[in-house]
Nucleic acid binder design. Structure first.
Lengths: 148, 148
DNA sequence: CTTGATGCAAATGGTTTGCATGTTT
DNA sequence: AAACATGCAAACCATTTGCATCAAG
């Protein structure tokens, strides 16, 4: 979960190490993702952010860049319900609780599934790697609204 | 998890109870979903199935019907990665552990998330309804293959 | 110089919608 | 008869692709 300015360079280094090229667009996209912190950005949002400094980066380039960065292992994609796809830093293991009614997203620590992981190993020999799981339900607000 | 012929009538009864109308298209869609058993069908697949008996049911009707049936609480939608959306019986609570390497799918009891549910309620007031969650990881076979 | 990345425009695929017509209640 | 569901065609939105040009190695 890096928010430091030098993080971009670290990521670019990883990119290079993976045999990918370093370009303005890729730097810009990485900067946008870092700027978003824990947030999950859609391609459109990334494009909007990069446009502030680089108005000429085309949306299709953003898509292709996000793809490359995922392949390079720097980013991970995630989809919520029927919203557009989102992207976030790959090493940022975490989970979500999403309200089915209002769409509020709760960020969860990456250990909430520890118990499940143990049980899967014991009962099925399955080695779970829960990296990005979404749990549906109702947030506190919507839930109390329902009970009322 | 109903596979019985009379199940369609049960579902239609629920539909009616919910103030919705009974139509040929809705029966046909429900039959398709039941025929699929545990499977998850896309709108296209449902359309294809209904076409065998009712070639005139339009794809847009299938979409609208699936929507209605979800609203009525008979079906639930689910999305996997970037495939088209799927639909399945709502009362069919279950979870999956999917092997990232070989694709093997493990069916899990619906209580594996009990601990997580409790914790979410306590820590965030979030009322989780884990109805259909997929956990990635490695199955026993692939896992031991990796360690070797 | 060679390969890979970009801009643009056009195509694609899944899904939704407006409207006139047909069906359920 | 009134309300709702359907067929169809057209619109929509997110995403992908072909191709000519450009930049990184």
């Amino acid at each position: 979960v890096a928010h430091h300015p030098e993080a971009v360079d670290d990521l670019v280094a990883k990119l290079k190490a993976g045999g990918h090229r370093t370009t303005t667009a890729r730097r810009a996209v990485l900067e946008a993702i870092l700027e978003a912190g824990d947030g999950h950005l859609t391609a459109d949002e990334v494009a909007e952010m990069t446009h502030r400094e680089h108005p000429d980066i085309h949306l299709s380039t953003v898509y292709r860049t996000l793809d490359s960065l995922c392949e390079a292992g720097l980013l991970s994609p995630a989809r919520f319900a029927d919203r557009p796809g989102t992207y976030h830093l790959a090493d940022d293991h975490h989970h979500h609780a999403v309200c089915s009614r209002c769409g509020t997203v709760l960020l969860l620590a990456d250990d909430v599934f520890a118990a499940v992981t143990v049980r899967l190993a014991e009962e099925h020999g399955f080695h779970a790697e829960p990296t990005h799981i979404t749990i549906p339900g109702l947030c506190a607000t919507c839930n109390s609204a329902t009970e009322a």
